[in-house]
Every structure is written in C-alpha cells, then in structure tokens.
Design a protein around this nucleic acid. Structure first.
Lengths: 140, 140
DNA sequence: ATCTGTGCAAATAGTTTGCATCCTC
DNA sequence: GAGGATGCAAACTATTTGCACAGAT
C-alpha cells in the first residue's frame, strides 16, 4: 500500500472526512521528493483554499503522517513520513536546494545523547548547511 | 575577553557604530543561558525599539557572533557563538524548556556525512525533541 | 439529517522597511 | 558635519480563526 492510501486510511480512522482539498494535498505530498512549504502546496493546487491546506497539514502532522521540517527559511516545510526510512536534510546556501540523506552513525550518536540526557526522545531533526557540489564548482 | 567585549570589537571593526540599542542587545545575549527570540529580547529591554533589536541581531548573525536556532516554534531563537564550544539543543515537548548538549560522536557523524555528500559544510543544527526528566516524572 | 470539511475574508504573529531624527565618530 | 543607528509606524509574509455553506457519511 502506498503512502497516500495509508494516509487516507489513518485520517478516516481518526474520524476525519474525505473532502476535495484533503485528497489533493495528500496526493501532492505523496508524490513530493522532499519537503514542501504550505504556500508551495497552495500555489500548486488550484481551487483549494489556503486555510484548508494548513488544516490538512495540521491533521496529517498530528497523526504523524507528515513531519514538519525547519530548514531556516521563512516558511516551514512538510514532508511525508515513510515507514521505510527516516532521513535528514542538506541545504545548499547558494541555490537553496534541499537534499535528503541518511546516516546510521548519526542516528546512533543521537540515540546515545538521548540515553545520556535523561530525555525520552520522540523525534529529532538535523539540518546541514553548505555549498552543494554544483554551486561549489560554479564558484571555483 | 568576554563575549560581549569581543562582539563589540567585531562590530566596530566591521564599520558599525555603537548605539544604546546595540549595547543592550549584546549585553542581554552575553548573559543568556540559551537561545532567546527577538521578541523575548525586545520585551526584556525597555526603551529599545523592536526594529533595532532585529537590526542588531542581523548584524551579529552576519558576523557570526550569534547563531539562529530554529526549535520548531513560531519565532526564531538567537544565541551567542562561543569560541569555546558548539552545542545543540534538546527541547521538552511538555514544558518547552531548551537545554544545550554536546556530543563528539554526533559531530564526527556529521563530518562524515559532509565528506560523503560532496557538500562543503558551513554549519549545522541538531534539535532533539522529547520529554525532559522533570516532565516525565510528573506524568508517571 | 447531521456534522465535518471547505473557502473566503479578516485577524494575528513575527519580521522588515521607510523615514525623520539622534548621536557616534 | 557626515553618515550610520534608532524609534515609530506602516508594510509584508506566514499562519490562524470566524463564519456561512457545501458535501461526506
């Protein structure tokens, strides 16, 4: 089952109804490569009110079907949470492009911090900023 | 030399002048335990316009004397960059408290990701969210 | 039929900008 | 004295809320 079907099911089980706005937002997120901001989503979908985009994102986040990603810009990004894999983000300071990465070593280190801190960790974000290969070449 | 003197010096060298607002913002940040938002700073300082707070924060960030910290709330936090040490943040989802931590293992893992990605890393943020020991106890 | 989802418009919150004035160098 | 720093108020951007109505169950 793909994410969009899974998301719809979870929303239904949580007692939410399926409207036209919700379907479109879920659809878009299902096909997205990486995080999208609420405004990007709103712009890409005709005939859906901005408020509905925000409300749908809230519900999805509450159910942990999507995750908020703060990469330092003005607007918050949202991307689906895949059962398959958890990832983090590299942000290019020049072109603004967002690329995902994974690192077991990193996850291990975070887990160790959690154990040492006494906090019961629920989630975590890692954002690396720098110059991507493409932009680095251009400058050189 | 403490941070506030260092910051003033850097600002001067960058060609900025020292006014009453700048002095107060630097002073506050120098004594802060962890990140403060622009609005917190504004509220804590009488007789300084909000715009001056933002402008001073911009200049400090540009010179890398402070660092912006996004912990997921609505407002961005700012905290001084100490030569001594670089740290990250644990956020309690219940009480909202922010605590700093350091981890060499984590820094190593990040460096490794940088090498593997082709990105020239400039900076990075790590935010861990969970329940702090105090709030965990209270719930139990 | 009921009660939630939706769209619009207005309200809010954080941040930025324009401009006249003050004050540092 | 010149030019940056400051404060105020207005502008802006992202996000939230109130409300009437359409639509899902």
């Amino acid at each position: 089952m793909d994410w969009s079907a899974h998301a719809s099911e979870c929303l239904d089980e949580a007692g939410h109804r399926s409207g036209h706005a919700r379907r479109q937002v879920v659809e878009l997120l299902a096909g997205a490569d990486c995080a999208l901001t609420a405004l990007e989503i709103d712009r890409r979908i005709e005939s859906v009110g901005r408020a509905s985009v925000y409300r749908t994102l809230d519900r999805l986040e509450q159910l942990q079907l999507i995750q908020r990603v703060d990469v330092g810009g003005d607007a918050a990004g949202y991307e689906r949470v895949d059962a398959s894999g958890h990832h983090h983000h590299l942000v290019c300071q020049d072109c603004g492009q967002l690329s995902p990465f994974t690192s077991e070593q990193l996850e291990d280190a975070i887990e160790a911090v959690g154990r040492g801190s006494g906090f019961a960790l629920a989630s975590h974000d890692v954002v690396l900023r720098g110059t991507c290969p493409g932009c680095g070449e251009r400058d050189a």
